[in-house]
């Protein structure tokens, strides 16, 4: 597995890039490989607020339907609209162009509950 060190992770296979009070959120490379070809992404409306662990959207591969969870509480600032027409970007560049949502972080303390790259890899060593 090759998970960037500068990102935070969740058990739900999401990555979080913290930038001031913003959190860019996507799914990990392991997640996209477990899902298979992504063919549909449904993202939230800009401005909507979520509590940590709420379902923000849906990501579907040919065979599977998965929820996208809010890793921390916050308001949606931006969504990756390019994925509506080209969901395959998630497979091609999960840690980059395949980002999903940008949240305005409501409570920075919640970041402490996220995993480091090392923790994440330990949890899913078998699948990677």
């Amino acid at each position: 597995m090759n998970n960037p060190q500068n990102l935070k992770y969740t058990q739900e296979h999401e990555w979080i890039k913290v930038d001031g009070n913003k959190a860019v959120i996507g799914i990990t490379d392991l997640a996209q490989s477990l899902l298979g070809d992504v063919v549909f992404v449904e993202l939230p409306q800009v401005g909507v607020e979520f509590a940590a662990h709420d379902t923000m959207g849906i990501i579907e591969s040919v065979k599977a339907v998965s929820d996208i969870y809010a890793p921390v509480s916050g308001k949606v600032l931006e969504v990756n609209t390019a994925l509506e027409d080209s969901p395959e970007i998630v497979n091609q560049d999960a840690f980059g162009k395949g980002w999903l949502v940008v949240l305005e972080i409501k409570d920075a303390d919640e970041l402490g509950g996220l995993l480091s790259a090392e923790d994440y890899e330990k949890l899913f060593a078998e699948e990677g």
Binding site: G36, D37, V39, S61, V62, K63
Partner: peptide, 9 residues
């Protein structure tokens, strides 16, 4: 086997 290289391919 459910897939080898990927369902779409």
């Amino acid at each position: 086997p459910v897939q080898y290289s990927g369902i779409l391919e």
